[in-house]
Amino acid sequence: MTALGFLYPGHSADDDYPRIEQLLGSDIRVDLVHIDLGGDTHRVDAPAAGDAAGRLAAGVQELRHAGADAVVWASTSGSFVQGRDGAQDQVRTLAQAAGMPASSTSFGFVHAVRELGLRRVAVGAAYPQDVAQLFARFLRADGVDVVSVHSSGTASAAEVVGWGEGELLALARDSDHPEAQALLLPGTDLHTAAHIPALEKEIGKPVLTANQVTVWEALRLADRRVNAPELGALFTREPLVQA
């Protein structure tokens, strides 16, 4: 049994995780601990994002007791808004507190792009434009060529919680770019686990979404590779590059 631990902000799209667990197979367990950051990380000046490390360190104890093999901070904007160095410090603190391998959704995106052997990506973000640009800057700092950034203009996580397949497909169409080899949809508050095949069919290329990438990153930390076609291209091919 491989136990994957996740620290998830709030409750927006936390039901993606039991859905993904069902698709991964019976020998993988997904454990979720909810973190209250006391604010919305969809803001450049969000105080909660900068104060996340202490809250994460406190929350990780429950995952340790549950026997998790790895832990991932399941928030994209809760890490990249601090820049690459700040996000790295956050993960380092988390690993020290957890006593196990640790990462975050932001780094999961970077590692997933490398795993698929890609360089050029488009970003479709359910964030304000300034926050979306910070995500692109984070990716570029790790050598990912971001050819376009599209912002839906939504100001808070609460605005996208109710999005279904129609809204996601519209975001994908609006965000795709002909030079991009893949489309990245950050934001663990988006319900995407049930819609990845439809998204990839719509634009004809891999689509990496936050909750999908978060679980994949935990599997990577636990040295597991799982074939799960319903979770998209990231889960249906042999890795080209060891991240």
Rank of each mutant, 00 (worst) to 15 (best):
A87I: 01
Q88K: 09
D89Y: 03
V91A: 02
R92E: 06
R92S: 09
Q96P: 03
Q96S: 12
A97V: 07
M100W: 06
M100E: 09
A102T: 05
S103V: 05
T105W: 07
S106M: 15
G108K: 05
F109R: 04
H111I: 07
A112T: 08
V113A: 10
R114E: 05
E115Y: 00
E115F: 00
G117F: 12
R119D: 08
R119N: 15
R120T: 10
A122S: 10
G124I: 06
A126G: 14
Q129H: 10
A132N: 02
F135E: 00
A136F: 02
F138N: 00
L139T: 01
A141N: 11
D142G: 05
G143M: 15
V144T: 09
D145R: 04
V147I: 15
V149I: 11
S151G: 05
S152K: 03
G153Y: 13
T154C: 14
A155R: 14
S156I: 09
A158N: 13
E159I: 07
W163A: 04
E165T: 10
G166Y: 12
L168A: 11
L169K: 12
L169R: 08
L171M: 15
D174C: 07
S175T: 11
H177K: 09
E179Y: 12
E179D: 15
E179R: 15
Q181D: 04
A182I: 01
L185I: 12
